[in-house]
Structure formats: structure tokens, C-alpha cells
Design a protein around this nucleic acid. Structure first.
Lengths: 206, 206
DNA sequence: CCAGTTGTTGATCACTTGGTCAATAAGAGC
DNA sequence: GCTCTTATTGACCAAGTGATCAACAACTGG
């Protein structure tokens, strides 16, 4: 076989670490954060289980960093997608559209796993806190950008950001667990945001 | 010791089943749904692990029924608490106050566990669906009671019930995972409900 | 008081988990 | 070529999981 040439090749620590991290991310997204185990990651990389343990101080931190990487990638992805919007109002509308879209269910499942596993995994709990802060900061920046552009006024951007994140997470969680479609929840979120920003009704409509 | 008289006493299946169910509920509330294991339950009841397995077809269904019992008890508790309200508007205000209260964090943690574990436990997933439906039905009944009393009008009570549950679950989940205090989220939920029911601003305020 | 029913137990199995450690072998530098 | 570093492995261990089954013993009906 042509792949035989790659057999038994020794890789640099950086390469291996990247491979392991990638495998862990894929497992987490397809089978859940709880399925990220030494043996599962090792099997996916095609390597002995001991090697995974060798590259990671403990499984708890691998799970935590895997979660962090997945969420950080999602934030980046959404950020670049929203970068094309010329106004903050457009960005907000696009954000609602994206975050309540059906393709987010896999990441939402990872969030649910993290919330649950975080009670027994301190490293994961810390990472959950970091990523929630990152999302909130992202939303605060987005909200305040609109304020400086005089598109609307907001009383307490940090608090409003937390509230909106809570609402969105709850609706997407429900949609992931039970209701296949979160699309129907979008109008409600649009109305809430319009009301909180004192925007005319329908401003955020597509 | 005086308790020696109870040693080695044989109990009726109903008694044992009740003991096991109670122990499972206590473990779930204090250590999480994932801590409900054969041995943990047996140890708490003070009985051999095999006996727990004898009374339960499988651990998956014990976890599922434990979750169901906890949530059902919560619904009953909230229902009786709201029974004292004379108007539906008062009941809604009380509901928001109760559901976003800080003492609910233990039950919320159980919900988070169930959402996560449900993906690997079909019996639990089914029970999660049942209890979500039960909560929605409860809210629909509450909303429609107010309509028949001409306190307000509601367009689509079932949809609104789902939306409100999603919002409340998201905010309480955030509060449980990260911020200890969900109290600050209450005004937002009150505003949303007032808006959706076309009630004057401040109607649901305490 | 004795036999039958059945609640209850101890022992044990097969499996999975995270983690350790000496031994191996691939590659780098001389 | 050789030696030295180190990535990599196989073989483990201890702990925990759900589940099964023959044996035991506490009641119950006769």
C-alpha cells in the first residue's frame, strides 16, 4: 500500500500534539465530550494509548482544552462571518440567524456535556468559564460598536449580553435535546433584542 | 444500640423499592445524576449491590426514573405554590420569581446532567422528553387559564410556553454553571412575558 | 413446628476507565 | 559508522462500572 511509507515514522512533539488535539475534537463533536478517552483518542490517531497519556498531563485537561478549542473555533467562525456586516444592526440580525440555526446542534451538545461534566472536572469548569466570558465579551463588543455608531442606545451592555447569551443557549439547548428546529424561536429573540435596544419593530427581521 | 432491632429485617418489595428510589433521588440531587450507580445506591440504603440490581431492570431505567421523580416533584411543588394565587397574572409573576430563584440550582444541575446523559441513555432521553412536555403543558394550562379569565390574550400558547421554558432554562443553566445569582435576570423575563401577553409594563413586577 | 416462598447476599465475571514504567527503536549529531 | 537522545510501545495496575447466579436466611402458610 502507498501509505506504508508513513508507517513507524517518528513525529515531532508539535505534530503529535496537533494530531491528538484534532482527534479529540473530532471525537467530542461526533460522540460527545464524555467519549474523549485515552483509548478512543489513541485509536483515532492510530497510536498506543500510552502516547496520548504521555502528551497530556491528565485526561481532565485534554477534555478541557478540547472543549476550549471547539468553542474558540466557533467564536472565530462567527466573528469572521459577522465581519462582512456593515452595520451593527445587521450584525446582530446575522448573529441571531446563525446562533439559532440548525447546524449548531453538534456544538450545543458539546456545551451541554461541558456544563454537566464541569462539576466533576475542575479544569473543564474553568475552561467553560473562560469560554462563556469570551462569548460575552464578543457580544459586548458587538453591542457597544453599535452604540458608538449611534445605531441604538444600550443601558447596560455587559448585563444585556449575559441575558441574551442565556436566552440563546436555553433555546438552542431545547432545540438540540428535543425540538429539532430552533428556527421558530428566532422571531422571539429578534423582538427581545429590538425591545432592549429600543429599535423599531422589524428592524432585525430578515 | 437501639437500631439493632431493625437489622436483618426483611422488607416488602414496595418498601425496598421506595427506599431505593429515595436513595437514588438523594444521590442525584447531591452528587449529580451520573453518581447514581448500583453501588452508590446500595451503600446509601445499606444493602448489597445485587439487591439494587434485583429491583431494577437496568441502571439506565433507574437513572431515568430518578430524574423523572425529581422533576415531577418539582412541578408538583411549584403547582401547589402557585395554587394560592388568585389571578393568572399573579401566578405568572410568582412562577418567574420561583423558577429564577437561587434555590433551584440543584434541580437545574440534574437537568443539565439529564440533557447530557440522555444522548447515551435512551430511557433517560425518553423521560427528559416526557418531563419537558409536562412542564410545557403546565405552562400552557397556566397561560390559557388567564385567557379564559380575560386577563390577557395570547396568540399561540403552546409555542409561547416552549419559548419561555427555553429562556428560563437557559438563564437558570447559566446561573447554575457560572453565576450564582439569577435574580438579575428576572426583570428581563418579566418584560418579555408582559410584551408577549400585551400586558402593561410593570404588571408582573413584585 | 416444619416446609415452601422469596427477600437478600457474597462471589464473581466481563468490561472500561486513567495512569505508570521499563523496554524498544527511530532519528540526530558527531 | 557510531552513540545519544527521545518518541513510542506493550504490559501492566488499581479502581470503578453493570450484571449474573448459586446459596443463604427470614418470613409465611399449613
Amino acid at each position: 500500500m502507498s501509505t506504508l511509507s508513513a508507517r513507524n515514522r517518528r513525529k515531532t512533539p508539535a505534530e503529535r500534539a496537533a494530531e491528538i488535539a484534532l482527534a479529540a475534537r473530532q471525537i467530542a463533536l461526533t460522540e460527545g465530550l464524555a467519549a474523549v478517552t485515552v483509548r478512543a483518542v489513541a485509536a483515532r490517531v492510530g497510536v498506543a494509548p500510552a502516547l496520548v497519556a504521555h502528551y497530556q498531563p491528565s485526561m481532565n485537561v485534554l477534555v478541557a482544552s478540547t472543549f476550549g478549542a471547539i468553542v474558540a473555533a466557533e467564536i472565530d467562525e462567527v466573528a469572521t462571518e459577522l465581519g462582512a456586516c456593515r452595520t451593527s444592526v445587521h450584525a446582530l440580525a446575522a448573529l441571531i440567524d446563525t446562533l439559532l440555526g440548525p447546524e449548531r446542534s453538534t456544538v450545543t451538545a458539546v456545551w451541554l456535556d461541558a456544563w454537566s461534566l464541569g462539576r466533576r472536572n475542575p479544569a473543564l469548569a474553568a475552561e467553560v468559564g473562560r469560554q462563556m466570558d469570551a462569548w460575552q465579551k464578543f457580544l459586548v463588543d458587538l453591542l457597544e460598536e453599535g452604540v458608538t455608531r449611534d445605531e441604538y442606545a444600550v443601558d447596560d451592555a455587559p448585563a444585556l449580553a449575559w441575558q441574551l447569551l442565556g436566552i440563546i443557549d436555553g433555546l438552542t439547548a431545547h432545540a438540540t435535546v428535543r425540538y429539532g428546529d430552533a428556527r421558530t424561536q428566532r422571531p422571539l429573540v429578534r423582538t427581545i433584542v429590538e425591545h432592549e435596544l429600543a429599535l423599531p419593530a422589524g428592524t432585525l427581521a430578515p
